[in-house]
Design a protein around this nucleic acid. Structure first.
Length: 406
RNA sequence: GGAGGGGUUCCCGAGUGGCCAAAGGGGGCAGACUGUAAAUCUGUUGUCGACGACUUCGAUGGUUCGAAUCCAUCUCCCUCCA
């Protein structure tokens, strides 16, 4: 099956500028394409991951990916799909974020032997001269049309500053630049990038008379339309320091029934024929699909070894209530011997954000210690609660945590 | 630069001198039901040495026995005009 068909059947493709031409190109030629990533945080997240999966599909099919780090565009801020202005980021923060992005990318795409290229648009955007830029690039943009673009729509009601209005020109110029330097003829991106991608295509056509193409991918949303990859504590990050692999695994293990199959299609390389079998699963059988999803995604992001470990840990925790590899916290023997409150332990283990929250949790029957429900908010823990130096705290139904004496 | 409107707790949004730790909704968390799902129902949702105390309503200062509410200055945002 061609990549094009593959992407299509996985439900990844949202919009295309030239459906027939793109399909033909991808099936007959080696295509150089790019996706831009603005370093607005110090780690990539699930939304980026989807883009990387697409790049990997393309790379496997023999096409040449350019991963564009938006060190320059992040200085401006993309207003697409946002209801308010991005806060300005310092140059140092952006440079640092770029370095983090690069690390994560190198693990995911194969950059050996020129099989993929990484560039940073700070290298050309930062040195642009205003007047020449306006004369060479600015002339090709119609403000009338820009104002009509979907990406500015919500901002025209709420307010849009000139700097953000320029974002489209920056991104369009990237495409032109990559077309000239690398022969890049295809830009991919999330569906929210449609307007920006069109901008680049028109710029290349008008200034160089060359036809280039664009294609966007379905945004990863839940069945009820919310963005996936968000939790109460923020985004689900690919950086294990920011989102521990165990939590990462659990996130996918707990997706809604309605989202599992779509996620497997979009985020893993599980063959479509395999997925077809999973689609027949119903009811509690879907748990098997969720386990597969969680395992596969964790494997892609954190490696097989980690995926094996955390999936085994999760399975053990939910069947036996304990595992060697479950999340754990060590506390000093002194504090246990002296008697330490359960609330303090939970606080240091990061199970609760405050003691008030912890009290409420206990009063409502949401905490168990060694499988016994706790009803006293002021419970003092001493060595009698530990067996072989271990104690298990469970918060709610799903959060298990082991306390060890060090 | 001129005129007007506005910044409230995680978000939206009430509140215009004491009854305000602040309505309502969303979201979150927990309980019940379940399949580590959804829906539904219930409880809860500033912090702490917790029938009490402390800190919050853009910032700072002031008026008052008492301020989210009144005054002054500052700051940011929006709308219209230039």
């Amino acid at each position: 099956m061609s990549v094009f068909k593959e992407l299509q059947e996985r439900g990844l493709i949202a919009q295309m500028t030239h459906p027939e031409e793109i399909q033909k190109l991808l099936e007959n030629e080696k295509v150089t394409f790019y996706i831009g990533f603005d370093p607005t945080a110090d780690s990539l997240h699930v939304g980026h991951f989807l883009q990387m999966v697409v790049m990997a599909h393309m790379q496997r099919a023999g096409h040449l990916p350019i991963a564009l780090m938006g060190g320059g565009t992040a200085m401006v801020g993309d207003p697409s799909g946002r209801s308010d202005m991005r806060s300005m980021m310092s140059e140092e923060a952006i440079a640092y974020n770029v370095s983090r992005f690069k690390k994560q990318f190198e693990r995911f795409l194969d950059f050996s032997d020129g099989k993929a290229i990484m560039v940073n648009n700070a290298d050309w955007l930062m040195n642009l001269k205003y007047i020449p830029f306006l004369r060479d690039v600015g002339v090709h943009f119609s403000v009338n049309r820009m104002l009509a673009a979907e990406c500015f729509k919500s901002r025209l009601e709420k307010g849009l500053s000139f700097i953000e209005f320029n974002y489209m020109l920056m991104q369009s110029y990237d495409f032109l630049k990559l077309n000239e330097d690398y022969g890049c003829i295809l830009q991919l991106g999330g569906d929210d990038q449609w307007s920006n991608i069109i901008g680049g295509i028109e710029l290349v056509r008008r200034s160089k008379g060359r036809e280039v193409y664009g294609m966007t991918f379905t945004l990863l949303t839940t069945s009820d339309g919310r963005k996936m990859g968000k939790t109460q504590s923020g985004a689900v990050w690919l950086d294990p320091e920011k989102t521990p692999p165990y939590d990462f695994y659990q996130y996918w293990r707990n997706v809604d029934d309605a989202d599992v199959i779509r996620c497997i299609k979009m985020l893993t390389f599980v063959p479509l024929t395999e997925i077809a079998k999973l689609e027949t699963l119903e009811g509690s059988e879907l748990n098997r699909a969720k386990e597969l999803l969680a395992y596969e995604v964790t494997k892609l992001v954190h490696g097989k070894e980690t995926a094996d470990k955390v999936s085994a840990a999760a399975a053990a925790v939910f069947s036996q209530g304990t595992s060697d590899n479950m999340p754990s916290t060590a506390i000093s023997a002194d504090s246990v011997n002296a008697g330490i409150s359960l609330l303090d332990i939970m606080l240091t283990a990061g199970l609760i954000p405050s003691k008030g929250e912890g009290r409420r949790l206990i009063v409502q029957g949401g905490v168990t210690v060694n499988d016994k429900r706790v009803d006293d908010p002021n419970l003092i823990i001493d060595s009698s609660y530990f067996e072989n130096g271990e104690m298990i705290i469970r918060k709610g139904k799903k959060v298990y945590h082991k306390i060890m004496i060090k």
